[in-house]
């Protein structure tokens, strides 16, 4: 790599990246720093009395069994959302990849849900599955299922996972479609000539060749499930019934904005931030190296 081959001035490249840097500094580093500082403080909601308490907010958090329950629940949700939306998206992508009449329409329709904002997704599903108003709940009741997500924690969790996974399918579908298009036809043809049937061709050729895409999507989906499901949970269940749909992000919001406990809320966001840094780190480290065919 040659350096400074294009730029005459040493300052010009810095000037060109300055706007982006400014945005990153103002909207990412500065608030992140504030969260870190806040996590060491004990403060009332209005910011009128402040005392520095070192790691008390963190220690209190770790002494709270409910926090660990939330961590476990969040991981379970992420896993469930990621696997269900990835598998459905892969299935759809493989089918859409075949030459079809009107394939473009089909593909466009599948991408639509991605444009729907999370709270809207929540409201949509709530209406379909509301115990007394929902269209789908009527069928469920007719099928003999005692459907009441207002009281049944498992049903509420299923509802949230379903809605969150549904929204993410389109995104995954797009990437899978692109990934499938990038697989050389010659490899598949060679396998066919060797006598491999479609299923076998998929698992031994297509799937391994897709693995970088799958791994990338897995990380993206987990991050999505960690953070962007907030809107869905807030509109659908508000964390209930009991605490069965409270995830880490929802707890940050609830403790900070509803409870006015900014110190604990900030400590929780710092922990979340660390989790995401680790996740992203793993992605950068392994996505191009380890996952190969």
């Amino acid at each position: 790599m040659q350096k400074q081959a294009i730029f005459q001035s040493k300052l010009l490249p810095y000037a060109l990246v300055a706007p982006q840097l400014a945005i990153v500094l103002i909207f990412f580093y500065w608030p992140a720093l504030q969260a870190v500082i806040q996590s060491f403080l004990l403060q009332d909601a209005f910011g009128l009395s402040t005392s520095f308490v070192w790691f008390e907010n963190y220690l209190e958090l770790f002494s709270e069994p409910a926090y660990f329950e939330t961590v476990v629940r969040t991981f379970f949700f992420s896993f469930a959302i990621a696997t269900s939306s990835l598998s459905v998206a892969l299935l759809l992508a493989v089918m859409a990849d075949k030459p079809l009449r009107g394939g473009a329409v089909y593909r466009t329709l599948l991408i639509w849900p991605y444009a729907v904002a999370p709270p809207v997704v929540g409201v949509l599903w709530v209406f379909m599955l509301h115990p007394s108003l929902g269209v789908l709940s009527r069928y469920l009741r007719a099928a003999g299922i005692e459907w009441n997500p207002l009281l049944d924690g498992n049903q509420a969790a299923t509802l949230v996972i379903l809605a969150a996974a549904w929204k993410q399918i389109s995104y995954n579908f797009l990437f899978f479609l692109a990934g499938l298009a990038a697989i050389p036809k010659s490899v598949l043809e060679a396998a066919a000539i060797d006598g491999a049937r479609p299923m076998r061709r998929f698992w031994t050729v297509t799937f391994p060749l897709l693995s970088p895409t799958i791994f990338f999507l897995l990380v993206v989906n987990i991050v999505y499930a960690f953070f962007d499901t907030f809107g869905i949970i807030d509109t659908m269940t508000r964390g209930g019934p009991g605490t069965s749909t409270v995830t880490l992000v929802y707890k940050v919001y609830n403790d900070g904005l509803i409870g006015g406990n900014l110190g604990s809320s900030a400590a929780q966001s710092v922990i979340l931030m660390i989790m995401v840094i680790v996740l992203t780190g793993i992605q950068f480290r392994f996505v191009e190296r380890k996952v190969t065919y």
């Binding site: 207002l150 009281l151 964390g239 209930g240 009991g242 605490t243 509803i258 006015g260």
Partner: peptide, 21 residues
């Protein structure tokens, strides 16, 4: 103090009682 969140906590517990847990 914290009444909004207090209500949430109480509701959580009542929900668990109503669900038979």
């Amino acid at each position: 103090g914290n009444m909004v969140q207090l209500r949430d906590v109480w509701a959580e517990e009542i929900e668990q009682a109503l669900a038979g847990k």
